[in-house]
Design a protein around this nucleic acid. Structure first.
Lengths: 119, 119
DNA sequence: CCAATACTAAGGTTTTTACCTAAGTAACAT
DNA sequence: ATGTTACTTAGGTAAAAACCTTAGTATTGG
C-alpha cells in the first residue's frame, strides 16, 4: 500500500496549477467576480460568450487547483473563492521581489565600498 | 496600413503570458536563479536534466513575456531579470486580496448591524 | 588553421488546452 | 406528469506546449 505523496514530491507542486489557472483571462475574470460574492454557474457564465460546457471546464480548472470551492444545492452549484492559493502565488512573487531588492542593496554596498577605497 | 494595437486590445494582455510563464517549475527556478545575478545560457541550463534546445525554449518564453532580457556578447548570451512584469503579476494578486479583505470588512459591518438591530 | 565551446535552427512526437456540439440527468414549477 | 431550468457527460477538433534528436553557425583558444 503506497502513499500518494512520496518523498520525491510525486505530485506537481500546487503553485504550478495556480499560476497556470491564472494565466487565462476568463478564469481571472471569474476570480475577480467571485471576489465580490459567491455565485452560481450560470451567473458566472453569463458575461462570457462561450458554450456552457467550455466555461464549466474553466471552473473545474479553478477548483482543481484550489482557487475556488463549490457545492451543489438542488440543481444549482454555487462557487466561492478560496483565498489561500492566491496568497501562495502572491508569496512567491513577494519573495522574488524581496530577493531582487536585497540584491540591489548589495550593489549599493558594493558601490559604497568602491567609493571608500577611492579615498 | 493598419496598426498592430487596435482599440479593442487585439494583443492578449501581457499578464496572461507572465502567469503562463510562471506556471512552469523550470522557468520559476530560472527566475529564482536570475534574482541572484545575471547568467549565461549554459550556466542557467546546468542544473537541469534537459536537452539544451528544450531549455532554451524556456528562456525564450521568459523573454517573450518580458520577465527577462538577454544580450549576446561574442558567443555567450547573458540573461538578466526584468522585475517589472513580476510586479504586474504581484499587483493583480494584491488587488484581489484587497478586494477580498474589503469584502470581509463589509461582512463584519453587516454582522455589526444585525447586532444593532437585536437591541 | 582547427578544434572546442556556446549557442541556434529545423523538424518530429506526445500531451495538454481550449474550444465546440449533441445528448444526457436531476430538480423545480405548474 | 411534464416542461423548463441548471448543469453534466461524452466525444471530437485544432492549436499550443514541452519535450526530443540531429545538424547547423559563430567565436575563441591554442
Amino acid at each position: 500500500m503506497t502513499v500518494a505523496t512520496s518523498l520525491h514530491s510525486a505530485s506537481p507542486p500546487p503553485i504550478d496549477g495556480i499560476f497556470r489557472a491564472l494565466s487565462d483571462p476568463t478564469r481571472r475574470r471569474v476570480v475577480e467576480r467571485l471576489n465580490r460574492s459567491p455565485a452560481s454557474v450560470s451567473e458566472l457564465a453569463q458575461p462570457f460568450d462561450m458554450a456552457l460546457p467550455s466555461f464549466i471546464e474553466h471552473l473545474r480548472v479553478l477548483e482543481g487547483c484550489g482557487l475556488v470551492h463549490s457545492e451543489k444545492a438542488g440543481r444549482v452549484r454555487t462557487y466561492r473563492l478560496a483565498p489561500e492559493p492566491l496568497k501562495l502565488a502572491e508569496n512567491w512573487l513577494v519573495e522574488q521581489r524581496a530577493l531582487w531588492e536585497r540584491r540591489l542593496d548589495q550593489f549599493d554596498d558594493y558601490v559604497l565600498k568602491l567609493k571608500e577605497k577611492d579615498k
